[in-house]
């Protein structure tokens, strides 16, 4: 980062003009806002105006950093506010995706984290970011009704033939780290409960996957592990229950499908079902 005199970024046109140079104005202004040097300003501004350019810069940086902080509270809680805002400051310079809503800002944060030196000490951080992103997408996904166990009454003898249409809010995030346990341990209400009871919950070091569903207006998380992940993945891909079960068995011959299927059904992940014909 440069720490010398405030930098002039590009050249600002000085007079009124017809068309082309206006594009130069916006580009120059934008480049100065995103410059590494916090004292950078667009050329053409005099001393006082150049100093006040920092107000726009602060607004822009703080606005985008706050949006990222709102979208990734667990990542923020894991690395602390100060470091998070440093990460966010670097991220906003790389982010070139314009979301329709600021609520969905930060789609590329997990990829950014995966390429950052922070993964040397917190290797699970990108996967936590993926989980938080999935949570946000599930929250704002299209509304639809979900089926329950009762919806399957009368089909008990043909469960293996059923094929499901997945609810639009459903996301599946798999990791080699215990992302569900880490996420749970960093929920504000969870932390409060722990302070009142017996200290932090123990986090087992194991691979976990999380299935997210939002049948009504609250996002639900289902922890999956082992062959249960493959079973869910097959159902998400539109496979019949029987074929999904076989794929899971191929991974683990002791796979117990009943509790996993009940859990998935109760999560509200299925919007509808059909009796599958042919194919997988």
């Amino acid at each position: 980062m440069r720490t010398s005199n405030p930098a002039h970024v590009g050249d600002l046109p000085q007079t009124d003009f017809m068309s082309g140079p206006e594009d130069g104005f916006h580009r120059t202004f934008c480049a100065a806002l995103m410059d590494q040097d916090p004292r950078a300003y667009p050329a053409g501004l005099d001393g006082r105006a150049a100093r006040r350019f920092a107000i726009y810069r602060n607004n822009v940086h703080r606005g985008l950093q706050d949006a990222l902080a709102a979208a990734y509270p667990v990542v923020k809680s894991l690395v602390g506010d100060t470091f998070f805002y440093r990460l966010a400051g670097d991220y906003i310079r790389t982010e070139n995706h314009r979301p329709p809503s600021l609520a969905l800002y930060g789609a590329g944060f997990s990829v950014f984290l995966a390429g950052h030196a922070v993964v040397a000490t917190l290797p699970y951080l990108p996967d936590i970011a993926r989980l938080e992103r999935a949570w946000l997408e599930a929250l704002h996904a299209a509304d639809a009704s979900a089926i329950t166990a009762a919806s399957l009454a009368g089909f008990e003898d043909r469960l293996a033939l059923l094929r499901f249409f997945v609810h639009p809010a459903v996301r599946l995030v798999a990791s080699q780290f215990p992302i569900h346990a880490i996420w749970q341990a960093n929920q504000a209400d969870r932390q409060q409960a722990e302070q009142q009871n017996n200290g932090p919950a123990q986090i087992l070091y194991r691979a976990e996957a999380v299935l997210l569903a939002r049948p009504y207006y609250t996002v639900k998380l289902v922890r999956l592990e082992g062959a249960g992940v493959e079973f869910a993945r097959q159902l998400l891909a539109g496979q019949r229950v029987g074929a999904a079960y076989e794929a899971a068995l191929a991974e683990d011959t002791h796979f117990d499908v009943t509790p996993v299927f009940a859990q998935l059904l109760a999560s509200g992940m299925f919007g509808a079902f059909t009796l599958g014909q042919g194919g997988g």
């Binding site: 206006e22 934008c30 822009v60 985008l64 600021l102």
Partner: peptide, 18 residues
């Protein structure tokens, strides 16, 4: 915003005829 970069602020518009 400009050229795909979203800036989440209300930035000044030049007061020109163009």
């Amino acid at each position: 915003g400009h050229e795909g970069k979203y800036l989440a602020d209300l930035l000044p518009t030049p007061l020109t005829t163009a």
